[in-house]
Amino acid sequence: MDVQTVNANVSRVPFFRFLNFEVRSLDSLHAEAEMTFDDRHIGNPIMEYYHGGIIASFMEATAAIAVQPDFADVPAKPINLTVDYLRPGVKGPLFARANVTRKGKRMASVSVLSWQTDREKAVAEGLYHFLLV
């Protein structure tokens, strides 16, 4: 699955267009994406921080792509998630890297890291489960 094809799929999903991100790299167990900052992503309008829900949504989208990059109709079905917020997401690009820790016949477990200028300074860390049937 090449990145161009995946991004073409991404651009067909209304909510993914709302998030405004692009997949940067992809292999069988990982996906990395970059989201462009927009005013509609703001949670704290004074400090212009990303809304925590937008960060979680972007991480969920990246995780779903790592699990099923070739989704035809809708992205992989999420079961649940937990997110740890480690630093505020400031105005600027946000990155996410999803790592499929286990992919079985029915379920997949994915861990996602999100950062801005320095990968070592995570903005958030999340665990996502998907139903594959």
Binding site: V13, P14, F15, G43
Partner: peptide, 24 residues
């Protein structure tokens, strides 16, 4: 809001928007 959907028919909400809603 159709912007928050994942399907072409725009009737299935993305989970993330529910997460954002709960957080808010």
């Amino acid at each position: 809001n159709p912007d928050f959907c994942v399907d072409a028919e725009q009737s299935l909400l993305h989970g993330g928007i529910l997460t954002a809603l709960l957080d808010s």
